[in-house]
Amino acid sequence: MSKDEFYIGWQEEMPPSNKRFIKRILIGLFILIPLFLMYGVLFQKPFNHHQFEFGTLTELTGIYHDNPVPILEVSNEDSTAFILLVGFGKFGAEEIISDIEKEQGNLDGKEVTFAGTLIYGDGVTLLELTNQEDSYVSSKDLKTENVDEVEDLGEFEWYGEILDPKCYFGVMKPGEGKIHKSCAIRCLSGGIPPVMRVIPHYGSEYNYYLVRGKNGEKVNEEVLKYIGESIDYSATITQQNGWKVLNIDLESIKAERDYDLKDLDVLNRDDYE
């Protein structure tokens, strides 16, 4: 570099040799960066097709059930859907329903109309009561009495991941795994019912179960530390208002990261039925 080509930043122009060199570096970067980004995006884990109809309120009418969690049973000529009700933000629907019931009386077993935001995917639908108590539109008594049956489906010993259903079924992508763990903890802590995602022994599609305690009690706080990771557990299964419920034995829960090498045979899925 000659004396004339010495670079000084406070001068108006840089020496031509510096300019040529920097130009070559920049051209290289402008070519490499898109290739690098393309490479990164290409291998990214795909997102699911779940939907959150943000900004669109939908009115749904159906039979409201308090148990095992707030559910709206919506029927048409062809089918019946058991829609989980959740609150705005990272909250469950229980407090909102309780506030509505202070004004309207007990809603359990009545035909109720709610306005809210739909969340749906993989055969599961949720309704966010976006406007809180104002999500209530109307209610009326049914002509025939609603019978709330609990069907016992036996014992179950398997593995799966506890999810926050509101985010998983549409509000966030991804709404599962390590990245989403903190958010799922907040959601369950706020009362959104935990859901266990399970891959059946024979099959490749997920099954979803509501998670309750051994005696059907709420266990949101107790399962917070296991959210977003694969866990093994024992439970009994019941079915109530269209949802299968895992009445989980909390003491049986074991995170797979806690297994020692000698326990690895426990993880052999073929042993499970």
Binding site: F88, K90, F91, H180, S182, C183, R186, C187, S189, G190
Partner: peptide
Amino acid sequence: QFHALGDTNAIVS
């Protein structure tokens, strides 16, 4: 995204 609109202050969360 992950901490606001919940039952705890977002930064504390």
